[in-house]
Each structure stands twice: as structure tokens, then as C-alpha cells.
């Protein structure tokens, strides 16, 4: 990989890692609240729909999800190598494809909200 390409890959990886490190504990906490049946008022349909239909909400959701997906895909690629899988090209294609599909789905659903 060229050095210029590496900087972009690393930059997106670090951005996604930072966003997920900062925000995913809160996100997991929200899913936990929902799971125990204590749905926060902000997750009632009207409020969450209003948040996701505002351009700020859309942008935040899209950036956090797409960059986190990219981060996870890149990290998982290395984890596969660490676990002894030596077919990097196939692994890279697979994990980046999944991240790309997730990104497209996120954009599609946000567009429809």
C-alpha cells in the first residue's frame, strides 16, 4: 500500500475508533435500558423520529455508523491475520464489503426517514 493511501486508511480507522470509543458505551447503555424495559422518553417514536429526520441527527448517525463500521472492518481484517488466516486479500474484500453494505444501508434508511 502506498504511503498516501495508508494515511487515509489510518485516518478513517482512528476517526471511527475515537467515535466508537466515546459514543458506543452510551449506545450500548441505551440498548440495555430498552432491553430491561426502561425505554427512555427520547426513544419514543416521535422524538427519535424527529431526531433522525433532522439533518444534524442524520449527519451524526451517518458519520458515527459509517466510520465505526470502517474502523471495525479494518480491525477485524488484522484480527483474522492474528488468528492465523493468511488470505488477506479475500478477508479484506469481505470485511470492507460488509462495511460498505452497512454504510449504504445507513444512507438509504436515513434518506427515507
Amino acid at each position: 500500500m502506498s504511503i498516501a493511501k495508508k494515511a487515509v486508511v489510518w485516518g478513517l480507522f482512528a476517526a471511527g475508533g475515537t467515535l466508537s470509543a466515546f459514543l458506543f458505551p452510551a449506545l450500548i447503555g441505551l440498548f440495555l435500558l430498552v432491553a430491561i424495559g426502561a425505554v427512555p422518553p427520547g426513544l419514543e417514536f416521535d422524538r427519535i423520529y424527529a431526531f433522525a429526520s433532522h439533518w444534524v441527527g442524520k449527519s451524526v448517525l451517518f458519520l458515527v455508523i459509517s466510520l465505526s463500521l470502517w474502523h471495525a472492518a479494518h480491525r477485524l481484517r488484522v484480527v483474522f491475520h492474528d488468528f492465523g488466516v493468511r488470505k488477506d486479500k479475500a478477508v479484506a474484500n469481505a470485511v470492507y464489503l460488509v462495511a460498505a453494505v452497512g454504510t449504504v444501508l445507513t444512507a438509504f434508511y436515513l434518506y427515507r426517514i
Binding site: 458506543f24 474502523h71 471495525a72 472492518a73 460488509v98
Partner: peptide
């Protein structure tokens, strides 16, 4: 932990 990130995404 990347698996958790992917799962929650």
C-alpha cells in the same frame, strides 16, 4: 472489540 462495534452498528 471490533466485533462488538460491528454488532452494535
Amino acid at each position: 472489540t471490533c466485533l462488538l462495534v460491528g454488532f452494535y452498528c
